[in-house]
Simulated assay, not measured.
Amino acid sequence: MYDDELADIADAAAAQVELIDKRLPAYLIHAAMAGAYIGLAIVLVFVFGTSLLGTPFEPLTGIVMAATFGLALSLVLIAGSELFTGNAMIMGVGALEGATDWFDLGRVWTYSWIGNLFGSVLVAGMAAYGGVFADSTLVASVGATKMTLTPLELFIQAVFCNWLVVLAVWCNFRLENAVAKLVMVWWCLLAFIGAGFEHSVANMTVLTLANLLPHSTAAVSWGGWLYNISIVTVGNAFAGVVMMGAAYWYINESYKLELPSGSPATPNFSSADDD
């Protein structure tokens, strides 16, 4: 049913482990690129959003920001880099398929998260000290909201977020046509940004900007940064492994069971191909 997709994802998981074993610095740079790509999209999103404040188009701020963020995952998938939230599913599938193991999952998650953090903070610092934001009102407001949600709210919104993000990654493995891949990335990220869900790597940039830019919001702090990122990271990982990776793996394994005599043939749900 999903043999081809799961095999491709398992191969991608094994390739990451191999690169870590052979050239860890190269892997960290690859992961830093993903953090930077997400960070660049976050900067663009908030520049656009800030420019609409106080104008007749201010009610459209949310949809404009959501429609813009598709750049982030598009760059990660098309240009190539290692994103922690995508690896939540990829490494889970790799372990379930036997291409890697659970220790490898922990290593890849750790190194991709560290690399993502470096790239995200680098972009946030460059934007903050490069004069990109003359008005930090929107960044501080969003940052304060993210830092004051309850743990349960953060966890649930993180699950929703990475469910959508990893759906885009899953579709990337199912589709052949590059345009179709980008369309699915755009739709999935539009949903997660539009709903205001929590993405650990995106928040690395947002919350760093909120702390570095001038603000008068008491809720914004480095302690709030750590509070948000720690819980959201767990929620993102849970969604990638359980809601997507394990779910599709279990469905696929179930279709491999021998059907009773006289049962209808197993339907063919091969990879979507938009050629």
Rank of each mutant, 00 (worst) to 15 (best):
A210W: 10
Y129N: 14
F48E: 03
S263L: 04
L24Y: 10
D135S: 02
L96S: 11
V93E: 03
W225Y: 15
L44T: 11
D275Y: 06
M243D: 06
D4Y: 05
S81W: 09
D135H: 06
V43W: 00
D274V: 15
L175A: 14
K256Y: 13
A14G: 01
N162L: 03
L117Y: 02
Y27K: 00
A10L: 08
I9R: 05
T137K: 06
N203C: 09
A124Q: 09
A79G: 06
T233C: 12
N211F: 10
A14H: 05
I229S: 11
G245S: 13
T50F: 05
D8N: 14
W109F: 01
V108K: 03
N236E: 09
F103P: 02
L75K: 13
G62E: 07
R23F: 11
A14W: 01
T50G: 02
E176V: 03
V132W: 10
M91R: 03
L190D: 00
L209K: 10
V132G: 11
D3C: 04
T148I: 11
R23L: 08
L40T: 01
F118I: 15
V17D: 08
M33R: 15
H30I: 06
A12E: 06
L40N: 01
G130D: 12
V93K: 03
F118A: 15
W102P: 08
L175E: 11
A14Y: 05
F133N: 01
L73R: 00
S271Q: 13
D21A: 08
V43D: 02
S271P: 02
A178E: 15
G115E: 08
E18V: 04
I42W: 03
A272H: 14
S81N: 08
W113V: 09
